[in-house]
Amino acid sequence: NITNLCPFDEVFNATRFASVYAWNRKRISNCVADYSVLYNFAPFFAFKCYGVSPTKLNDLCFTNVYADSFVIRGNEVSQIAPGQTGNIADYNYKLPDDFTGCVIAWNSNKLDSKVGGNYNYLYRLFRKSNLKPFERDISTEIYQAGNKPCNGVAGFNCYFPLRSYGFRPTYGVGHQPYRVVVLSFELLHAPATVCGPKKST
């Protein structure tokens, strides 16, 4: 009989979020998941679920829940969905086509923008091939755009693969920082350890 609540607040209220190319993952297990707390949290810009209804989450049990978190621009949030393409979905964070879970995003301009620009948040701009679902690539190898080998030196046709967002408070909404948490639900042939409040007695 599990009684402790799942530590969703640790994920959602973290002081610093990860850059999207180096997205953070927390495994959540052996706890009671009260999703209504999240669902009623006012400032969400997006709360979209795939393969599961957000209002039914509290009735369900899962083997594991993974909480992935990172920061992207407002106009990139739409790429955090199954079957998407674009710089983020291709080179930074890719969801599987059969994704079961929820994508939760909110504007973090007050936290993550600075006058003069916040350059701490990076994304991958160049990559030889697209990421596989949930693949994480933190390499900083110089990207070779031409035929000539770069030998690890940036220059003509040789690019550092990461780019900084440089968030400023005055940017338009599409270019403002958004914090994103992706909850993915794993249902294995194993005992369920993460259940909603109704199922955990």
Rank of each mutant, 00 (worst) to 15 (best):
F12I: 08
K199F: 14
A18V: 07
S200C: 13
V103Y: 01
I142L: 10
A145K: 05
P82M: 03
G155S: 06
S29Q: 11
L122I: 14
D97M: 13
A67T: 06
K199E: 13
S113I: 01
A190C: 08
L111F: 11
C195A: 12
V182Y: 01
Y143F: 13
F185R: 04
N58C: 08
T193R: 12
N58T: 10
Y39P: 08
I72F: 01
L5W: 12
G146I: 02
P7R: 14
T201I: 14
P133Y: 06
N4Q: 14
L122A: 11
N147G: 07
A81I: 05
S164H: 06
K128C: 07
R25H: 06
P7C: 10
L187Y: 10
L95I: 12
R124D: 00
Y21I: 06
P54E: 14
S53E: 15
T201S: 15
G101L: 02
D97K: 14
P133G: 09
S164I: 02
C49M: 03
Y91W: 07
A81K: 08
S129F: 09
R124W: 01
E10M: 08
P177W: 03
S139T: 14
S129E: 14
K132S: 11
I104F: 15
V182L: 01
V37S: 14
G86M: 03
S19L: 02
T170I: 01
I80P: 01
S164Y: 05
A18E: 10
I28Q: 02
S36V: 06
S184Q: 10
A190Y: 12
Y66C: 08
S184W: 14
E186Q: 12
C61L: 07
N118T: 06
F134C: 06
C102E: 01
F160K: 15
I72A: 05
E141S: 11
K199Y: 14
R163L: 15
L183G: 01
S78W: 08
E135C: 06
Y66W: 12
K94R: 09
G196Y: 10
S184G: 12
A46C: 10
P96A: 09
G172I: 00
F134Y: 15
Y123K: 15
C195H: 11
L38N: 03
I104V: 10
V103H: 00
S113A: 14
Q176D: 00
C61H: 11
C6S: 07
Q144T: 07
K26V: 14
A18D: 09
D97C: 07
T170V: 01
V37Y: 15
L38R: 04
V194D: 11
F45T: 15
R124H: 00
N30H: 11
C49G: 01
T63N: 12
V11C: 05
G152S: 12
N30K: 07
I138W: 07
N58S: 12
F12A: 06
K198G: 15
P7S: 13
F47L: 10
Y93T: 00
P177T: 01
A67E: 03
Y159I: 01
N24W: 04
F8D: 02
A42N: 09
N1K: 12
D9S: 13
N107D: 04
V32M: 10
C102V: 05
N40F: 08
S108G: 06
V52W: 07
Y159F: 03
T55M: 13
Q176G: 02
G86Q: 03
T140L: 10
C49W: 11
C6E: 06
P43E: 09
V181P: 00
A33P: 12
S164P: 13
V182G: 01
G117N: 03
F12R: 03
L95Q: 01
G174L: 11
L188E: 15
V71S: 02
A33F: 15
V115M: 11
G172L: 00
V194H: 12
H175V: 00
P149S: 07
L188N: 15
V52T: 09
G101E: 00
F8A: 03
F8M: 08
S36L: 08
F45R: 15
S19M: 04
P161W: 04
C49P: 00
A42Y: 10
F8T: 04
K56M: 12
T140M: 13
T55K: 13
L5Y: 12
T3Y: 09
V77C: 05
F70T: 00
E10L: 08
C102W: 03
W23A: 02
A154N: 11
K94Q: 05
N157S: 02
A14K: 10
V65W: 05
C195T: 12
N109F: 04
S36W: 07
W106C: 05
N30S: 09
R16L: 09
C102L: 06
Y121E: 02
H189P: 15
C150E: 00
V103R: 03
D98S: 11
T193L: 12
C150Q: 00
F45H: 15
P133A: 10
V153C: 09
V182Q: 01
R168E: 00
N24E: 15
F185E: 01
R179F: 00
I88W: 02
C61M: 09
N64K: 11
R163V: 15
N1A: 13
F70S: 01
S139F: 06
F167S: 00
R136T: 06
N75C: 07
I28A: 07
S29E: 12
L60C: 08
V153G: 12
R27H: 12
K128N: 11
Y171F: 07
T15K: 13
G83W: 07
I138E: 14
V32W: 11
A33N: 08
E186R: 09
P197M: 15
A81N: 05
A190D: 14
P177L: 01
N147H: 07
V11S: 04
I72S: 02
Y123G: 09
N151A: 12
F41V: 11
N64Q: 12
L57W: 10
V173N: 11
T140R: 12
V71D: 00
N147L: 06
S78H: 12
R25W: 02
A192E: 12
N4H: 12
E141Q: 11
K198L: 13
D90R: 13
N118E: 09
Q176I: 02
I142V: 12
Y178T: 09
P82S: 03
R136D: 02
R179V: 00
K26P: 00
L162C: 04
F70I: 01
N157I: 03
A154T: 15
N92A: 03
T193S: 13
S78E: 11
H189W: 09
K110R: 12
P161R: 04
N1F: 08
R168G: 00
G74W: 02
A154C: 07
L188C: 14
G174R: 06
N58D: 13
N120V: 10
A22D: 11
I142K: 04
C31K: 07
A67M: 13
G116F: 06
F99Y: 05
F156W: 06
E10Q: 12
V173D: 11
S69C: 05
N130D: 10
K199I: 13
V194P: 13
G155T: 06
P177M: 02
Y143K: 02
Q84V: 11
N118Y: 05
Y91R: 09
A154S: 15
S29M: 10
V20D: 00
A145S: 09
C31V: 06
A14D: 07
P169W: 04
P197I: 15
N30W: 08
K199T: 12
V52I: 13
